[in-house]
Design a protein around this nucleic acid. Structure first.
Lengths: 402, 402
DNA sequence: ACTTTTTTCTCGACAGTCGAGAAAATAAAT
DNA sequence: ATTTATTTTCTCGACTGTCGAGAAAAAAGT
């Protein structure tokens, strides 16, 4: 059932529109906002006055200039309105970053993950301590932090705060909400890493052509991640991170470290490729973590014509291709963007991917999807973090009184 | 990018709300509308007055009564505001129905599909002629028809007017928009049949509990259909019909009549089951159409312990189970509702389905989905038709002037 | 100093929702 | 028969929001 609308909601929506425009473009003048949002000049005045009064945006002093006429005065988000903490949890390190409300990076440090310390309880302590350290280094109080955006590989619950399954902690659930709630008033956001990649790529794509509909980001590495970004009925971006890596590929295939058999990851993840290449029995997990150098060696021998190594990459490609074909069968056609450390072997995977794709009616009808390799996954993840955190902050601001 | 809002849009949204409430409940009084929509009484007055002036709704004469106080006067959609034509295209017959704006069925007839007459052109002629006949029988003009809602099994294009692939016409595309556009001013809507089932079931589910999130309807028969209904961010119902039946099950499996190999349908559709049961080579399509009596015989022998017959249903179940597990991997957990003629063999399929489901991490984590058999698919399809057609008409009415 | 140009701001008109209370219409009580 | 109580519907004024037009502001050219 739909929910009722009111004049207040109109203002809220249009406020968000103005804030989003400022976010996209950094800073805009009164007239630019009007043309960007299609709002009347008078409305822009009303909204910006309100936002300014609330201390959310400010007018820049030096009016940049050229031609004649009254100089434009630029409006922009006030950088000191608050702060955002971004945490990227990966298998070997945890990266903590601090950014301001304007989206500029203020501080960053990394901590190696201690693999001896098992369990979520221990991690929780280290995590909380690191956040404290981040505050102290920049002399910021908890109250000034508006959002804490955390990412990990794995499966995130619908409420966006609980990590249900992850390669790092297995199925031991990790609830960041309850971990941080008492002390922090910031909004806690937990996202799958590849979801953030999809978000960042979708924002980029929207800036270019405006016929953007949907895209899928696939991250290749030790595990296989999928992020989906689709434009909803009302023009809003709808991102999700389905459990692609552990979707069933073939029941006859090898054991996955999640405990099931035949997951995509078990064939296309690094350890799966290694297992096939070295002809390790398919019901053993060869390594907790496969260093890139090891993968590089297998790739090199594959490129020199080594049979099993080539076969391993080929099989991985087929698993990916089949998975993508199923993805496209269950969603609409969309371009595929591939990131992650595994992209350096994409030449070896490609033929298998094509083979795996060709088998389905969907691909025969619609043609194969456009598959592009995109570099710099870490940058995309961080961009996605900021994007998501800042725009939900803006949403809350527009909604609550302001 | 989001789009701007305005006070007019507010009225539009709230008008839709009122119309939707009247649709759901048949007829409501002023106060009932107010409580149902959470709108203020004054607002309800304004909106209903407008709708009444436009001839869309009317007050019923006999005020039904009980207690004391001023009697309530009931408002309801005016049945003679316009008409809706519903066409269900199935492999053997085409059913034409006429309903009024109030949603009551006025006329219905069926025509056997002539299987000798191949091709979409011939079908187009027969189709147009049948619509004319439907008008004449009830003495209605084309101008009074507000929507023509057509359903078929198969794959419908995103624009909701073109049939891209269907078991009936293969990949010969059928564009109902261009077929009917010049003469009819009605809105042409083409939907996958199982999508309509999902729509109808979702509407039913929403009436009961209001925590409804999503559901999947699977139709078992000669082909396998999937309809997905999910509640969007703004409370609206988002239905789609992905190409589930022709999603890849296993590349090693049999030939599908779509021309690909290993589709779910090729294992779980009637002809697939028959093929396995009779050990027909897996690269031949045994029959264009398998009569139910034939399937009943196979089922009977399976229930009496015949090995290959039981195996065939088991394999079909596994294909379904794997498919559902993949569906749940790529979407969120949701209940599965099974309809169609194939449900009479569900006892034989069930064990295979469970086996096929059990193989994935998703199911291990979230538990197996709730699977329910729902009877009377044809009724659901028709309900879905009316629901969809009438609510899009209402949407257009609220949007355009009125 | 005056004009031109461009941007920003302000004012009144208009569209919508809401709460409160008036008006309407009936049943029960006197 | 009249009054009272009760319930529903309708109406009025206040409030919030958007919009177009034009005034005010602030610079550059003449």
């Amino acid at each position: 059932m739909l929910t009722k609308s009111s004049t207040e909601l109109v203002r809220q929506q249009n406020s968000m529109l103005v804030l989003a425009a400022l976010r996209r473009r950094g800073s805009l003048s009164h007239t630019e906002i009007a043309s960007e949002t299609a709002l009347a000049s008078a409305t822009v005045s009303a909204i910006t006055a309100e936002l300014e009064r609330a201390g959310i945006i400010a007018r820049s002093e030096q009016h940049v200039q050229g031609g004649r006429g009254r100089p434009r005065v630029l409006l922009m988000p006030r950088r000191d309105y608050g702060y955002v903490i971004v945490v990227r949890i990966s298998s070997d390190i945890v990266q903590y970053s601090l950014a301001d409300y304007g989206g500029t990076l203020l501080d960053r440090f990394e901590e190696a993950r201690n693999h001896d310390l098992k369990g979520t309880a221990a991690f929780g302590q280290i995590f909380a301590a690191a956040l404290e350290r981040l505050l102290q280094r920049s002399r910021i109080t908890k109250e000034e932090v508006l959002a804490i955006s955390i990412s990990s590989k794995g499966l995130v619950a619908g409420d966006g705060a609980r990590l249900i399954w992850s390669p790092v902690f297995g199925s031991e659930e990790l609830d960041f909400q309850s971990l941080l709630r008492p002390e922090w008033r910031a909004k806690i956001m937990l996202s799958n890493e590849t979801l953030l990649v999809a978000q960042a790529l979708a924002v980029r794509a929207e800036e270019g052509r405006d016929d953007f509909k949907a895209l899928a980001a696939i991250s290749l590495g030790h595990s296989i991640g999928l992020g989906l970004a689709r434009k909803g009925h009302f023009g809003e971006l709808d991102v999700s991170a389905p459990n692609f890596g552990h979707m069933l590929h073939t029941s006859s295939a090898g054991l996955c470290r999640c405990g099931s058999r035949g997951c995509i990851e078990a064939a296309a993840g690094f350890y799966g490729i290694l297992r096939t290449a070295f002809e390790v029995p398919s019901d053993t997990i060869p390594a907790k973590f496969v260093p890139l150098s090891e993968m590089d060696k297998i790739a090199a021998s594959a490129r020199q014509g080594h049979r099993m190594a080539g076969y391993a990459f080929r099989q991985a490609g087929i698993a990916l291709g089949n998975g993508i074909s199923r993805l496209l069968s269950l969603y609409e056609p969309m371009p595929i963007l591939v990131t992650g450390p595994g992209t350096r072997y994409f030449d070896l995977l490609q033929k298998g991917v094509e083979e795996g794709l060709a088998q389905s009616l969907q691909v025969r009808l619609m043609g194969p999807p456009e598959i592009t390799v995109v570099a710099d996954e870490q940058r995309l993840v961080f961009d996605g973090h900021l994007n998501r955190a800042l725009s939900t902050i803006d949403g809350g601001l527009a909604a609550g009184h302001d």
